[in-house]
Design a protein around this nucleic acid. Structure first.
Length: 868
RNA sequence: GCCCGAGUGGCGGAAUGGUAGACGCAGGGGAUUCAAAAUCCCCCGCUGCAAGGCGUGUCGGUUCGAGUCCGACCUCGGGUACCA
């Protein structure tokens, strides 16, 4: 008997699909369309198991939907701009462009043997001038539509390398290369006005029925709509130009517990004081040390500086509060100033204790309410509490009621204004880096900031300077120091001008690629006819790590593209259904360099806790998301080489539920291979039993007729149950359970004594059910057993409902909720009869010991519970 | 710090509030073989001679019945706006 040889059969079927153009997406108005998209990869150069898992899941959906009669669009591209290319050029020399395109070629070559049903004719990379030129055109349209503007924003500044650092490049507050303490510095940056859409982005989440609740919840919290009070505290003896401090608070009900006013070190008042007082300047400089991340700011030690200024409490002009500059107050949120109420905010309480400020309770718990000591009293806003100084509501009221009443009271008395604020900030898209999409504007001395003319697009990145590839070993942005690239003429007046040297955040690239796939070669960003047919993405699949930023930015971009005429109204929410797959994790291996800094190693370079090359022991850090920077990535190419793509595909689908993280282990791959070999061996057994003349002769003999025996019926029932279960598994993203059902059916088929026609039918159908997961093996079996045409074009099998009906059911009998016995009864037996039988059961009789049960619960078709 | 998840045998995991552990891995036993590989069959949560008892991160609650629902906590993971 011939052996299972994926090395030979897989390329054969891949060639057959290509010759047949099986996976070309066809704009066919007569058929329903289905657009399945997996988040496109960053071209690191090697595919890893996370990619295999992600793209196999999408492929299962694409192949399944195709066999259900849909015209399927399943494209692939490359998220090709970004820092790693510049880092590689910095470390190893070479050019980001060459590095990137070479990586893309490598990864495509690694991906193709997986046999994915991708329409490769639509492939593009975001670093293709053809793509980013269209992105520049859209940027200009957005600029005209008032969706883009410039303002100051804070960046991580490395004072030694004199360059802007990404958050990832700030390690424990220090620059990753220079080791110098990082400072926060302000630069003028480009912004998208995503905050204009905050309300809509929030409300529209309710319509995304096929998105995971957790993702919608994370986005809701991120957008962070809050109702609060904006009010002014008047300053006593203010510096010139100031008379009050505007404060935003979501807890105006705690005003009577105010103990200090806090302002951000970046607040205009702090900046004014800084100019005159060296001590304040020193304090603000101290506050600006460290990175820009919310995490760094929130977890830093809370520091405050008493400015000596005082404000009057709005309800009592004799009540004065000190004004502190505090490092934990963000200028980006609210007004950059707060009032501190230590009794009901832990952070304020810590601050008050540290600086000896008063702690005044405004409310206490209803029962045995104790005054606050070292733990702030912060009950849920819906919980009623007892107020010590209610100024517009009852003594017993909830926080919600008190907040509403406080806002109303302050509005009526002219003390403040109820306002709605969002946590969501505008999207800063400027990057002071080379390897990104150039922002297509020009700075002209007379005309100011002017967009480039569309006919001059794309504004292409320069490859060389003075005839030599750009040198990336020098820190900073090569565009900024390029001898000629910056020089241009003003599109408006024609005078000599300078190009913008900032490039775009790579999130811009990935915020509209799904739309470009519908017409990847169009001369405009999209082709409305194509977008109208293919949009929306019916099923989007990707990692949960993108739950907020990428998905929120994409939702914003779809709206912006609709406004600028690049997407139809119906595509305003571009992703109808979202599935977030878990990550593939792996242990992390590292050694230390002379300075004690970690050096990471690939799993393939490590054996038994030691480096293969040197024998040096490695430190092992528990599993985490596979990432290029930590090098904890596994190479699937080896798996495909030794076992074939179908084994790799079957394995990544089999062991873990798709939404959950999976830790990569080598042991499962062999098991998957063994199983596929077993499936494969059943088919030639069936072929051998058919007539000498082969399948044609066998069919001519009329041997396809059902012999109708008991074994045939049993097999057929199992088959239809399997069709049903596998289909439900695929429809609900339970691929691992589909796989389990196929394992179980293989066991049944292998042992079946059913007739040859019944077993042949079962094998053909099983091949179809496996085809989305193991397409090559399925084609081979289909072909062997005389299936018509390609299995990839065959219609999905339908379960016969009559075959799914069971005649008898097994009812477990519980006594006091514990299973003690069971009962076989006809499916439609009446409740009364079941009760009688249950009470007659030996175990029940024993337990009752002659008495009567307290209660008897019969859930028809499910369970019996006897309560004693 | 804040927001969102996840915790079930030796391991990956299954289970519309209704028999916890499907399916697979590892392990044990057997068949076949001169022998081995491959393949096939059987056993396999813990504990107990058994009847039974105990078991889904911890502690409480709701329910006839909780892995599933509610509350508090612990541990791990993701995000935290310049990693993608």
């Amino acid at each position: 008997m011939a052996r299972y040889t994926p090395r030979e059969t897989e390329p054969k079927w891949q060639a057959a699909w290509e010759a047949d153009s099986t996976f070309a997406a066809r704009h066919d108005p007569a058929r329903p369309k289905y657009y399945v998209l997996e988040m496109f990869p960053y071209p690191s150069g090697r595919i890893h198991m996370g990619h295999v898992r992600n793209y196999t899941m999408g492929d299962v959906v694409a192949r399944y939907k195709s066999s259900c009669g849909f015209s399927v669009l399943h494209p692939m591209g490359w998220d090709a701009f970004g820092m790693p290319a510049e880092n590689a050029a910095m470390e190893r020399g070479g050019h980001p462009k060459d590095w990137t395109y070479s990586n893309i070629a490598d990864m495509r070559a690694q991906m193709k043997p997986l046999g994915l049903s991708i329409d490769w004719s639509r492939e593009f990379a975001t670093c293709d001038p053809d793509y980013y030129g269209q992105q520049q055109a859209m940027f200009i349209d957005m600029l005209h539509a008032g969706l883009v503007y410039r303002k100051n924003a804070t960046v991580n500044w490395d004072p030694v390398d004199m360059t802007v650092l990404a958050n990832e490049q700030v390690i424990e507050g220090k620059g990753w290369r220079s080791g110098a303490p990082v400072e926060r510095r302000e630069l003028t940056q480009w912004f998208f006005k995503i905050s204009d859409f905050a309300e809509d982005l929030l409300n529209a989440l309710d319509g995304l029925d096929n998105w995971p609740e957790k993702v919608k919840l994370m986005q809701r919290n991120w957008i962070g709509k809050s109702r609060g009070l904006q009010m002014a505290f008047s300053l006593i003896d203010p510096p010139e130009g100031f008379d009050r401090v505007e404060v935003y608070t979501t807890r105006p009900d705690t005003l009577m517990g105010a103990s200090f006013l806090g302002i951000s070190p970046d607040h205009p008042l702090a900046k004014a004081l800084e100019r005159d007082t060296p001590e304040i300047a020193a304090f603000c400089a101290e506050c600006r040390k460290g990175g820009t991340t919310e995490e760094a700011i929130e977890t830093a030690e809370k520091l405050g500086y008493d400015t000596g200024l005082r404000v009057r409490h709005p309800f009592d002009t004799a009540w004065e509060l000190p004004v502190y500059i505090a490092n934990f107050i963000l200028m980006d949120y609210g007004t950059g100033a707060i009032f501190g109420c230590p009794a009901h905010d832990q952070r304020d309480l810590d601050f008050a204790r540290k600086y000896g400020l008063p702690v005044t309770d405004t409310f206490v718990a209803l029962e045995n309410g104790q005054p606050v000591e070292n733990e702030a009293f912060v009950p849920a806003k819906s919980e009623p509490v007892r107020w010590l100084k209610p100024f517009a509501w009852d003594e017993v009221a909830t926080g919600e009621e008190a907040v509403d009443a406080a806002i109303r009271f302050c509005e009526e008395n002219g003390a403040g204004q109820g306002v709605t604020k969002f946590r969501l900030r505008d999207w800063g898209l400027s990057r002071q880096r080379y390897w990104g999409c150039p922002i297509p504007v020009v700075h002209c001395e007379t005309c100011g900031v002017v967009p480039e003319k569309k006919e001059n697009l794309p504004v292409e990145l320069p490859y060389d300077e003075d005839g030599k590839p750009i040198d990336f070993s020098i820190p900073g942005n090569p565009l900024d120091r390029h001898p000629t690239w910056r020089d241009c003429t003003c599109p408006t007046c024609g005078a000599p001008a300078r190009r913008e040297t900032d490039t775009m955040d790579t999130f811009v690239d990935s915020s509209w690629y799904y739309a470009r796939f519908t017409a990847p070669h169009a001369a405009t960003p999209t082709d409305m006819a194509e977008a109208d047919y293919w949009m929306n993405v019916d099923q989007y699949i990707g990692g949960i790590e993108h739950a907020i930023l990428h998905l929120l930015y994409s939702r914003f971009f779809a709206r912006a593209m609709q406004i600028t005429g690049h997407l139809p109204q119906k595509a305003i929410e571009p992703f109808d259904a979202l599935f977030t797959q878990g990550m593939v994790t792996h242990e992390i291996y590292l050694t230390r360099d002379a300075n004690g800094r970690p050096v990471y190693h690939l799993p393939e370079d490590v054996e038994a806790g030691k480096l293969k090359a040197t024998g040096e022991m490695v430190e092992v850090i528990p599993s985490a998301k596979m990432s290029k920077s930590k090098k904890n990535v596994v190479d699937p190419v080896n798996i495909i080489d030794s076992f074939g793509a179908d084994t790799a595909r079957w394995f990544v689908l089999s062991d873990s539920p798709p939404e959950r993280d999976v830790e990569w282990t080598a042991s499962g791959a062999e098991a998957a291979y063994k199983h596929l070999g077993r499936v494969w061996r059943i088919a030639p057994g069936i072929v051998d039993e058919m007539s000498e003349g082969g399948i044609a002769a066998y069919e001519a003999e009329g041997a396809g007729a059902d012999t109708g025996g008991e074994d045939d019926l049993t097999l057929r029932r199992a088959l239809h149950k399997t069709i049903h279960d596998v289909t439900i598994g695929i429809e609900s993203f339970g691929f691992n359970t589909s796989v389990a059902k196929l394992y179980a059916f293989t066991n049944i088929l292998a042992k079946s004594r059913a007739s040859l026609p019944a077993r042949r039918e079962a094998m053909l159908v099983m091949a179809q059910l496996m085809a989305p997961m193991t397409p090559h093996l399925s084609e081979e079996i289909w072909d062997m057993l005389g299936g018509q045409g390609l299995i990839s074009r065959a219609a999905w099998p339908q379960a016969d409902p009559a075959m799914l009906v069971e005649d008898t059911v097994t009812l477990p009998i519980q006594i006091n909720g514990k299973r003690r016995s069971e009962l076989q009864v006809p499916k439609d037996m009446s409740k009364e009869e079941v009760e009688k039988l249950a009470l007659a059961d030996d175990a029940v009789q024993r337990a009752l010991n002659g008495g009567a049960p307290k209660k008897l619960i019969v859930v028809p078709g499910r369970i019996i519970n006897v309560v004693i």
